[in-house]
Design a protein around this nucleic acid. Structure first.
Lengths: 305, 305
DNA sequence: TAAGCTGTCTTTAATAATAATAAACATATT
DNA sequence: AATATGTTTATTATTATTAAAGACAGCTTA
């Protein structure tokens, strides 16, 4: 009779195999460490260690009697246990899901089938539920009145509001940055960033694809001067949305990227002058361009309303 | 044998009782409407209607034969079904949870016991899970490596970062507002707000408790000029945190509130001059005071680190 | 015969039951 | 006294199951 396996025994299996390794390093006849020591060493609870020891005893690998754990033989390939398929955690899910939505161009209003998606992404259904719940904070999905989820974004409105929000946050970062003292490490980082931009500009005709990661890095550095968990959280979504769309929009890609590089350089220049107004103006220019790029990339795809 | 009730049959029970009402309004011997009609009328699926009709037949309230549904008798009290206890949805949970954390002064680092809390709040455990997942976006809770949740906020750091974030958003709103044309409806709303502030100032000695809702209203109006879903989402948390703490901090409450009213009035005045710099300065002053109030209210409570 | 109805079946989400794990407590051994 | 094991309890993650919704096809009646 197959009993329902309520919770995966991954921890047990891994601990058991690890114990086999440990045993193989000992002489036959040697004593194993205490349960407490083993549990500390393998980083699992004593409960898991005890189950594993019991099984080792059942397989005659050790002789278990009270606190005596005598090694009787070394292990062979058959002794190894195979764990259940590993499910993804909620962190890996995030980028895979947004990737799916943005790349597959899933239209707004799509009803999200939790059962199906959990298979596709190889996660537990409740993991998806939790994930959707957290995404609902960003208005990407909404819960339907009696169960189920609907994909809301990414509409044109969403893009506009996201861009505006990004602008608010990033202008704040820029103003902070311009006020930092000259011995702050940020200036060295900006110098190095500037060099990378100049390098890419040299070989823009063939390497224009390299701009996307550089853009991500650039904005990350700018925003790094503001230490704020809310800013950080939003940066994740902003970065994902902007850069996925960036990668798609193939119209005038070389020119767009070249223009963006020049805007970045202008911003670096303005920041270095430590003139807040000048820096803000340069940042505004670039963010406006970015917004336009995002909007036009949505328009080339059909269902942005 | 009691079978496990996987999903609550609230919908069935409610539909059944509703059907009883409907039957009681008919003469004995009358025909009931079609399943489709009933399902449309009661707003439930035909599946539920069919189960209910079958039960009505079993109880000899109707005679069910194909599409003939003849009423045989009126219902009595015993026929009524009692549903399972109603669980709260995730929306009600939000304010109740934050209320609990803030009022009960749950210390940061507390491990949140989902099983226990789900009883206390009378919600399903998975509802809590989802809720925590969404709260984790705001860094109020974090998931522990192997299951479970820990309450993070509200530490001093959290308060500082929340205040700073609030300042960024609200200064943006203020700059927007100052640029709005004179015929915009916002000016009338500000006039009325100003009057409410002046009124309260008159009777501040006895009614200083009335300030908290007025403060909430004031900031809501200021921020209403920016239409942005991300701003709105944050306003919810900001408003909750600030106003709960506001209500606790009893030290110099009258003076604090009077000062805050004067700062509000100064901001309204500055906004009306439509001088962005002046308005920004006034807003900064008030937000700084607000931040200090929040911090001091955390310090009076023991465990802000 | 067309419109509407019911019978049947499929799909999906919400919940309870359950196994895995962690942790606390009690007892035994060195 | 310190550390080990034995036992019990609490809690989470996952599965199995049920309620509900919806789709489809065949029947009935006007």
């Amino acid at each position: 009779m197959i009993r329902p396996m309520a919770r995966t025994n991954t921890r047990f299996v891994e601990a058991y195999n690890e114990l086999l390794n440990l045993c193989d390093q000992l002489e036959v006849g040697a004593y194993l460490p205490s349960e407490n020591a083993l549990s500390a060493q393998l980083g699992v609870s004593r409960t898991v260690i005890r189950s594993a020891l019991t099984r080792l005893d059942d397989c005659s690998i050790i002789a278990l009697d009270g606190r005596e754990k005598i090694l009787r033989r070394h292990s062979n390939a058959e002794d190894r246990l195979e764990g259940p398929p590993v499910l993804l955690g909620i962190e890996e899910l995030e980028s895979r899901f947004l990737d799916w939505v943005l790349r597959m161009d899933v239209p707004p209003g799509t009803v999200l089938n939790v059962a199906q998606l959990s298979k596709d992404f190889s996660v537990a259904t409740h993991t998806l539920q939790e994930f959707f719940s957290s995404l609902s904070r960003f208005g990407i999905v909404v819960r339907r009145p009696r169960g189920g989820w609907v994909l809301l974004g990414f509409t044109k409105n969403y893009a506009v509001e996201l861009s505006d929000f990004r602008t608010v946050l990033e202008l704040n970062s820029v103003r902070h940055l311009a006020a930092l003292p000259l011995d702050h490490e940020i200036w060295a980082r900006l110098d190095s960033l500037e060099q990378e931009h100049l390098d890419l500009l040299q070989r823009i005709d063939k390497d224009f694809h390299d701009f996307s990661p550089l853009d991500e890095k650039f904005h990350a550095v700018i925003n790094s001067v503001v230490v704020n968990r809310f800013v950080k959280e939003f940066q994740k979504i902003i970065s994902l949305v902007f850069h996925y769309h960036f990668q798609w929009n193939k119209t005038h890609e070389r020119e767009r990227n070249e223009d963006a590089i020049r805007e970045h350089l202008a911003l670096i220049e303005a920041l270095r002058s430590r003139d807040a107004d000048k820096a803000e103006a340069a940042a505004r220019r670039h963010l406006a361009t970015s917004k336009q790029t995002l909007l036009s990339s949505l328009e080339t795809n059909s269902h942005a309303t």
